[in-house]
Simulated assay, not measured.
Amino acid sequence: MSLPFDVLADPTRRRMLELLLERPRLVGEIAHDLELSQPRVSKHLRVLRDGGLVTVRAEAQRRWYQIRTEPLADLDAWLAPYRRLWTEHLDQLERHLETMPDTPEEQ
């Protein structure tokens, strides 16, 4: 499970996934949108591809990159118990805030 976390630890790769969430893109488009060099983008895309988070489709000389949702679903499943914990804490905070006076005069 650590590989997707390692891959997503880099903010540039997370930004790339945000772009790919909209639609498949070419390397040049990603480079332009992120204002990065094409070789740098290609290196990051290779890490994303090796980590199973994107696929690449060759079309003549062009390479289309597309997000893979399966590894992200695995991450979401791993995070589920923590999400329940956060929700419980937020519910406790909400209950606490509801018991507090609304105005300073009520204190």
Rank of each mutant, 00 (worst) to 15 (best):
Q38F: 01
L48M: 12
L53N: 03
L36H: 04
D6I: 00
R14P: 11
A73V: 14
D74V: 12
L20A: 00
A77F: 01
T69Y: 00
E59H: 13
A60T: 15
H44T: 08
R46S: 13
V47R: 14
L45R: 06
E22H: 10
E70M: 04
A9E: 13
L79S: 08
E18H: 02
L34F: 09
R49T: 09
R68L: 13
L79P: 14
D6W: 11
Q38P: 05
W64K: 06
R13D: 08
R25I: 08
E35H: 11
L48E: 02
A77V: 00
L8K: 04
G52A: 15
T12R: 00
R15M: 09
Q66D: 13
V7L: 08
P24M: 04
L17F: 14
P71Y: 02
D74R: 13
R68G: 12
R57Y: 03
E29A: 04
P71Q: 03
A60C: 05
P4S: 10
A31Q: 02
Y65H: 11
L26V: 03
R46A: 15
L8S: 09
L45G: 02
A73Q: 13
L75S: 04
P11E: 10
F5K: 05
V56N: 09
M16P: 04
E18T: 10
A73Y: 12
R15F: 05
A77H: 12
W64R: 00
L17P: 05
V56E: 14
E35P: 07
H44F: 06
R46G: 08
G28T: 00
L72N: 07
